[in-house]
Design a protein around this nucleic acid. Structure first.
Lengths: 204, 204
DNA sequence: ATGCCAATGTTAACACTGTTAACTTGCAGG
DNA sequence: CCTGCAAGTTAACAGTGTTAACATTGGCAT
């Protein structure tokens, strides 16, 4: 199935693979269809039999990214509420740190506009769903304060996403051990989200 | 000073201006030096007298962005601690929403790598400094719990940055009024950061 | 006032890029 | 067998960033 003949037979897969390694090493802007084709040993227009355009190829990489992110989150979710929430935070940040360029592509925004690739939107939504389910479960256990679900999930999502982005871009002075930073930040948010067992005072 | 002669006299400024409007309307990837020169009415290589390369032009736009962000943050800082902290959060997010493409450029990461443009790093640092000063002031007032300064600033920075990025990219279901979302998120974090006036129980 | 020079433009060219059109090859099923 | 369709090919277009070599000019020193 890997004959050096006219019909390559495995081009689509091999192109994704090669694009992924280029992405990992040099970022999305370094992905060139012509260079990809050259390295694989095929002519550039051949790729258009498998991808509508460059952006569609990038979208597929991002989809794959969201799928593995979802898997990683699911793995740390089967635990008690607090542990699950902190685990999600840590898993999320470590995913971004392990694959910064992939993460940047997934949340590029301008490079992969929302709405242009439905399967991408779905994959992102599915990953987000893991977080939302975990938050809802924790709240139903009475572990979290009875605030609107959308508010709490948005807060958690914002926090881990912002932390990921800032650390991989080097905006945070990472002199300290960074895992501890992520853990501290996550629990700092939780101290505010934990339902007060006693001394419940509203802040109007 | 605007003669249609050989020496343009105002090219640098005009190029920045034009690049900024293109950025605002179509994003950084739509900024083309050749197209810019064409629209201004000058030959492409002329731009290289004023900018080392395309990336340097983008860097100057980002620098300007950080400067105006800093100004906006300073304006809401001259208030009591809690009001200042929430104000920073709101100002930050609204800045991103007013100018999404500029914001994306400022925190591009891959398009403007950290360390390549010292003046950019400084401008970003200066904006961050406003947040850090405000947090430190609030903590010294006793308004915040006595946690490490770096931890609290990192948390606040992560939260507002993540929220900004997620909203401008449409990842958050923005059906609700979004300003209220930002306010809710910011105060939710604060509830966890506020030093408990009574009933101080540590969580080891 | 004049002459020179550095700053600031110009054109031509190189090496890329994404993308489409038109043509060719060869495997698979009637 | 042969034919049709999927999957590859070359040629070409329009665009990009960037550099080299050349042209023009405004201002400064003589």
């Amino acid at each position: 199935m890997s004959k050096a003949s006219y019909h390559h037979g495995d081009l689509s897969q091999q192109a994704r693979q090669q694009a992924l390694t280029v992405l990992r090493e040099q970022g999305d802007s370094a992905i060139s269809l012509r260079a990809l084709a050259r390295q694989i040993g095929v002519s550039a227009p051949a790729l258009y039999r498998h991808f509508a355009d460059r952006e569609s190829l990038l979208a597929e990489l991002a989809i794959h990214g969201f799928q593995t992110l979802r898997q990683r989150l699911l793995q740390v979710t089967q635990t008690p509420p607090r542990q699950a929430l902190i685990g999600i935070g840590l898993a999320y940040v470590s995913f971004a740190q392990d694959d910064p360029n992939l993460y940047r592509l997934m949340f590029g925004g301008r490079v992969l506009p929302r709405g242009a690739h439905p399967r991408l939107d779905d994959a992102g939504q599915a990953a987000f769903q893991v977080l939302e389910d975990t938050v809802e479960r924790a709240r139903r256990c009475g572990y979290l304060r009875p605030l609107p679900l959308s508010l709490m999930t948005a807060t958690a999502w914002s926090l881990v996403h912002g932390l990921s982005q800032l650390t991989i871009d080097g905006h945070l002075p990472g002199t300290d051990a960074e895992p501890r930073l992520a853990e501290g930040i996550t629990s700092l948010l939780l101290e505010g989200a934990i339902s007060p067992t006693n001394n419940n005072e509203d802040t109007p």
